[in-house]
Design a protein around this nucleic acid. Structure first.
Lengths: 205, 205
DNA sequence: TTAAAAATTGACGCATCGTCATTTTTGTGG
DNA sequence: CCACAAAAATGACGATGCGTCAATTTTTAA
């Protein structure tokens, strides 16, 4: 194998290319958080770097594409956490708990930047970018695997995955609105709810 | 009481005001569906009516506000359906089934306009309009009432409402992607899942 | 009939859009 | 070290959309 990890043979050209792309993404994250996604313009983003306006278009075609790249990046960083939760788990319940704690912890970290309210900067997490589709697939695969092993009943894995993602999103957002956000408690609620429905969710108080 | 329902004493001024506002909303729905929310401009919307560009700003401040009005309108039309489901039901399960069938039927109707994929018709941020908050409150009230009557366990009503809404949204979107969308089946899935968790969801096939 | 009030209109100044010819930077061979 | 080609950055440009506003038309009320 001559494909060993390409340690660091990056010329200056490649390095600045990576650096510029990253600078744009960092500026975009900040701008989206500060003024909200809708209000932000490509010019606002590029002003947050030391690049010229035309340079933006060497890296992205539009604001939407930048948003997609950020979402893709988040999804790519989250996916291994999800995978790890699956591999670490020895039971379905453990898998679910690991996955939800990973997700709730992740969004708690991601939203620590000060600025506009959460709702105005938050991606509408649909099966959008390749990495986000990969996350959805990871969720569904994990559930299908559990079903195949008899750890979960044989139900519609697509709807099930959607239900879990919906719960994760909405309960996650609700958690962020509470201060301080209690990650374990939120995960406990979600896991109990998914496993047993109303009867399984932790009693209040 | 001299405040009796104001039957129809609308002058021409009031009538055209209502008509123009409605014309803008109708055009906006069509434009959002056809070219996608992001790509649409205020000019695109106003071109879909016989009004001048400046007139738009007598009714709305921005494209976002138009979307908010559409969302608000949808929520306002949906809320009574939800309320009716609650009043009609004689058990918690019946309430849930009625609510989900109402919601899934509603979004199936709402998205019958041909055009861009569902996901592109909305902004990438979540807007919480007054009527949408009212719908959320209706959901939570319904659940709290059930809890108070001992028809459901005493769990965190806020998280529960969020979980139900998340399920409704994600499973609803997934349902729309299938053709033809099977409203009853989707509702059966959601209700079973909420009541009993994995064990309660209908088996596949 | 007429004057005040309200609403509509479209042109205006300004900002952002995406492009592209030009300039600057980087990699390569003599 | 220099020169030359490829690659990338730059900012000015025409086009388009933005939100405003003085002028105009329509409606209401006296």
């Amino acid at each position: 194998m001559s494909e060993t990890a390409e340690i660091e043979p990056l010329g200056k050209r490649e390095r600045t290319k990576v650096a510029n792309r990253q600078a744009i993404l960092v500026a975009a994250r900040r701008v989206f958080a500060q003024m909200g996604y809708e209000a932000a313009s490509v010019r606002d983003i590029i002003r947050g770097t030391d690049l010229a306006s035309g340079t933006f278009y060497n890296y992205f075609r539009s604001k939407e594409e930048v948003f997609g790249a950020i979402a893709d990046d988040s999804a790519a960083r989250f996916k291994p956490l999800l995978r790890a939760a699956r591999e670490r788990a020895t039971s379905f319940e453990e898998y679910l708990r690991g996955a939800f704690e990973a997700y709730f912890g992740f969004i708690a970290d991601e939203n620590e930047l000060e600025g506009r309210p959460i709702d105005e900067r938050r991606p509408h997490v649909r099966s959008d970018t390749p990495e986000m589709i990969a996350v959805y697939d990871e969720v569904r695969d994990g559930l299908e695997a559990a079903i195949a092993r008899g750890m979960a009943p044989r139900i519609d894995a697509d709807y099930l995955a959607c239900a879990c993602i919906g719960i994760a999103q909405e309960v996650g957002t609700a958690m962020l609105r509470r201060s301080p956000p209690d990650i374990k408690a939120a995960a406990r609620f979600a896991v109990g709810f998914i496993l047993k429905g109303l009867d399984g969710a932790p009693r209040k108080g």
